[in-house]
């Protein structure tokens, strides 16, 4: 372990790619990153006046699923006012 390397980096370098824990952890983190990216871009779409219908269509999911996932969060953050 060279100076400046964190234990986590050293650990990541030690594990082999065949270790399922490494791959599965990467999948988990990718899913989390994807969720954050989705929030960011849904917020941007709403800020630009996109309807839930249009956002759902762009993401190729149902309107209900995108609304369930984002409307409550946006309301809680004071980002949604009025009806949609």
């Amino acid at each position: 372990m060279s100076a400046g390397e964190t234990p986590a980096v050293a650990l990541a370098a030690q594990v082999t790619s065949k270790d399922p824990a490494t791959g599965l952890r990467a999948v988990l983190e990718l899913r989390r990153l994807l969720q954050e990216l989705e929030r960011l871009h849904v917020d941007n779409a709403r800020a630009q006046g996109w309807s839930w219908e249009n956002i759902a269509s762009a993401l190729q999911v149902s309107r209900q699923s995108v609304h369930e996932k984002h409307a409550g969060r946006r309301k809680a953050a004071g980002l949604e006012n009025g009806h949609d």
Binding site: P7, A8, A12, T22, E29, L30, R32
Partner: peptide
């Protein structure tokens, strides 16, 4: 263990 670093390392392993 700093979870943030572990998370970023996991993605960097994927090339992200």
């Amino acid at each position: 263990v700093p979870r943030g670093q572990v998370a970023k390392d996991a993605l960097s392993w994927l090339g992200i």
